[in-house]
Design a protein around this nucleic acid. Sequence first.
DNA 1: CCCCACAATGAGAGCGCTCACAAAAGCCTA
DNA 2: TAGGCTTTTGTGAGCGCTCTCATTGTGGGG
Lengths: 338, 338
Amino acid sequence: MSTKKANIYDVADLAGVSHQTVSRVLNNHPSLKPETRAKVEQAIAKLEYRPNQAARQLVTSQSQLIGLLVSGTELYGPSGILKSIESEARTSGYSVITISVLSRSRESWMDAIGQLRGLNIDGVITVALPREVIDEVKAALPDAALVVVATEPSKDFDVINIDDLNGGLLATNHLIGQGHTKILHISGPVNQYESQMRKLGYERAMKKAGLKTQVLDGDWSISTGLELGEKIFSSKDLPTAIFCSNDHLSLGVIKAASHKGLRIPEDISLIGFDDIPEAEYFLPSLTTVKQDFIELGEIVIAKVLSNLKEKSKNETLFMQPKLIVRNSTTQLTAKKRK
Amino acid sequence: MSTKKANIYDVADLAGVSHQTVSRVLNNHPSLKPETRAKVEQAIAKLEYRPNQAARQLVTSQSQLIGLLVSGTELYGPSGILKSIESEARTSGYSVITISVLSRSRESWMDAIGQLRGLNIDGVITVALPREVIDEVKAALPDAALVVVATEPSKDFDVINIDDLNGGLLATNHLIGQGHTKILHISGPVNQYESQMRKLGYERAMKKAGLKTQVLDGDWSISTGLELGEKIFSSKDLPTAIFCSNDHLSLGVIKAASHKGLRIPEDISLIGFDDIPEAEYFLPSLTTVKQDFIELGEIVIAKVLSNLKEKSKNETLFMQPKLIVRNSTTQLTAKKRK
DNA sequence: CCCCACAATGAGAGCGCTCACAAAAGCCTA
DNA sequence: TAGGCTTTTGTGAGCGCTCTCATTGTGGGG
């Protein structure tokens, strides 16, 4: 019983065939006698043989590795997307290397990309990255199948997005439908595509209803929600409803409202975006726009795999978000009854 | 200008040296004339050469890859730990492959472990996994440096834990110090080491103070917090304080309290565990026990790297959590003033 | 001025696998 | 039974690197 790991020749010897036949079994070659295959498989099991990925990769120059590039902050948010992508990839025999870059400097991005290059990555998925970085990725890894999530559509690569514009419309129209006319929007980071689209959805819905828009630019953080909330609630001219670009902002706004003694939804209706697991348990439970990250992950991996096989058609796919009505929004008239 | 990727021979030709000299530059061999090194480095830069990890791995049987095994549910919680581990590993030239297994079945674990085996992983980090799985990992990957996070200490491998026992003590003593005597504990999953220790801390603190313990077993979810909270608040004999084994449970309890018209902290003091980013913004902001995941990640990677060099001493390291006092707990006497 | 030690570089093999091609084994038809 | 298929299996090369061992250059002591 040797302690050394078995290789393909050991298996071949034990099975009484050539190494090439073993390789064929490994790769599901069609022309193989079933009994030969069985013999080899027995030998494999007996020796606990596992093909050495490095050797395989060296000759095929395929690593079975997918790089997942995320901006640092994003990792806190929809970690569901990572999980979903990872498990989908695994069922297809791929492994995922997640790289989250915290700094905004070009250098740290190039560093991360360089690492992927050395690993001979087969595919790259980017989530919520600025266009410049994606261009660098494409330049540095021309052979990798690229799928871009949550970035401005482009003809240069495949894009998979939540339909944020429609999400913004959904949220805003829900409030308008409840009779609200003074609806304020707290946006996400101004330079990020997702928040731009949500804001645009808001603006279009308001315009269509003949209402005046009022926007405060923010980011994705709870603390900004709190800060802007306090600012809003200190003015004499209160909106009757607020649409926040994500759930975390909403949480901050709820906190600010409680500071000022304002009730949600009686005094102010509030709607968020994302449907994080906690949203249902906010006080009050949060009306929001749900993104299905699990499904997104499945589609993303499917896309990567298909791009691996044939050249990508560089199309953009939109996934539809869904309005989840809970208790943070209410008919404007309800306010008068109170 | 060839489109093909440069290899070590291309660099050698351009620099006018042998391939072996290039290899020496790559590996920082000491006996190298500085000018030779410079020449080679120039050629590397000019050709944008990157060493092929697969080839290197094939001969050294080192992959520069670290596997991170997490139970599926965990990924939603302390994603900070993943991020921290990943970025620490990267600065040391390692890549991290995250695998989160959702199912509890032995088969799906073996599947994940098999994948790591094929990749010739250098090190494995497990987070909050049951002992049986860790034993499987150790058996299947005897050559990988193993570091175990959040599991019962053992002489068989290195363990790095938050000092959950002390955390439980900290939380409970905080409540006792405020004059509470009827303190209830909602625990995490009974079969998980972390929650067992937190519960034990609670029990020890209560016993020392001569108080009667009261425990409800739960899990890590908000919905369980809500459910148990409603159960607690429906009884006639209310506790004056509750210690939840994590922040999510607390959120559920807050919700339950609001349903029943109970105020926190005036009627019930509440303390959580974790200090998730949202905790500060709960209504009321949550008193909790903070775990520093960033620091944990740094220590974990340092440990993995040191185990790679020399045999592990199989020691257990405890990191101290910190009490964060916010507004969900208050002196028991305050209740009477109200 | 020669020899030896040591520094600096080069040459060739081989890691474990897949690829292209070659050979053997069946099978059918004439 | 020979000839020509197709199916099934075997052989040798080579992916890009690091390893071991061999070779060349350099300087100082006898």
